[in-house]
């Protein structure tokens, strides 16, 4: 997953649905752990559409 830093409001809705607890939201950034499977839950949760999922083929 990729976060558009200028759209993101740092609300943490993404982290609340991450099944692997990989997302850390702070004032400065959204950090994602390297075990992300691009499941897309975070993108669906985001109120402002700041998250893009790159589907692995």
């Amino acid at each position: 997953m990729k976060v558009d830093a200028s759209t993101c409001m740092r609300c943490g809705a993404c982290a609340s649905v991450c099944p692997l607890n990989l997302i850390e939201v702070s004032d400065a950034q959204v950090k994602v752990g390297d075990k992300c499977t691009d499941c897309g839950a975070c993108a669906k949760a985001c109120p402002v559409g700041a998250i893009e999922i790159e589907r692995k083929i």
Binding site: A13, S16, V17, C18, P19, N21, A41, K44, A45, C46, P47, V48
Partner: peptide
């Protein structure tokens, strides 16, 4: 405590 998408209100 993981939320399902059914259990999250996404708000603006």
């Amino acid at each position: 405590t993981v939320l399902k998408l059914d259990d999250l209100e996404s708000g603006a």
